[in-house]
Design a protein around this nucleic acid. Sequence first.
DNA 1: GCGGCTCCTGTAGCCGACTAACCAATAGCC
DNA 2: GGCTATTGGTTAGTCGGCTACAGGAGCCGC
Lengths: 162, 162
Amino acid sequence: MGTLEQEHAHGASSVAAVGPVSALIPAVARAHRTLAGTLLREVGLYPGQELLLMQLWEHEPRSPGELARALRVEPPTAVKAVSRLEDAGFVQRERSTDDRRVVLVSLTASGRALRARVEQIWAELERRTVGDLSQADRARLIELLGSISRNVGDVGPDPCGP
Amino acid sequence: MGTLEQEHAHGASSVAAVGPVSALIPAVARAHRTLAGTLLREVGLYPGQELLLMQLWEHEPRSPGELARALRVEPPTAVKAVSRLEDAGFVQRERSTDDRRVVLVSLTASGRALRARVEQIWAELERRTVGDLSQADRARLIELLGSISRNVGDVGPDPCGP
DNA sequence: GCGGCTCCTGTAGCCGACTAACCAATAGCC
DNA sequence: GGCTATTGGTTAGTCGGCTACAGGAGCCGC
């Protein structure tokens, strides 16, 4: 990217000059999210919802709190997502009998039916995302993103329960 | 339709297995955004708003459309951000005289006053983001993120004018 | 038993992002 | 000139994400 137009008065504080990585991360994430959104639209999902469904496909039922921890998201975010997925008919809520504080979220038939198609979509998304990067480049990218993730405060993967 | 019914039996299609890069990008972006938010809170900005102000610090005044293109965002997003920054008193709107469709957004005194502090914050954000990565690693990361950016449909940097 | 503490869910309200649709002003064509 | 197309800004509505807070259920200590 060779835009070296000289800055005026205060001098040289282009966003890409001040923080190249910090500028790139949100931009890439937005474009990636948009792509995911167009692919997911076909099945009636919005980006982020498929991640919650994937959690349920792996292990069901789960409470909103568990889902929030697994998705590394604050509880209200998971609650809202569950509500919308419930409205859409992909998921159902039920209060736990032995601990009446917790709610158990489980899949409906149409929620289960989405699985194959969503996995195809995710494979396509990943394919388009990495493009023609070599296997080594992908590994390097994953490693570097892992470093960034730790640096900005995100802890590593959380294997299910304690 | 789906022929992978068999694979559903044991689950085992973890999100990180299906699309490692696609899983990492949003996670890193969210954590990075949260960090930016806590740093920016001190000056009363939300993540994203500082990018719009940076555009104005570089070149002022600009129309919402120009801002949207520079930030690679849809026009309504820029308009809303301008409205909120206007309410916060950092920016002001004015209709252009020679083309009465376009609106010119310019900085107020308090908007200009934010510059130094925000640039410090961005330096700090970048420092924390890259952490102890070597110069070579940073360059590699930037290069790889650039590839991803092109792959997912984001075109390269857009030098100012048409 | 009863008051307090903690945990889990849900609500309210904010911001950034998008799409779809609207409207005013310009530009272009006849 | 006038009629249409295009451009630019804005509105309305939706979603994901957050913080702050409210309310109910369990788990104590007493």
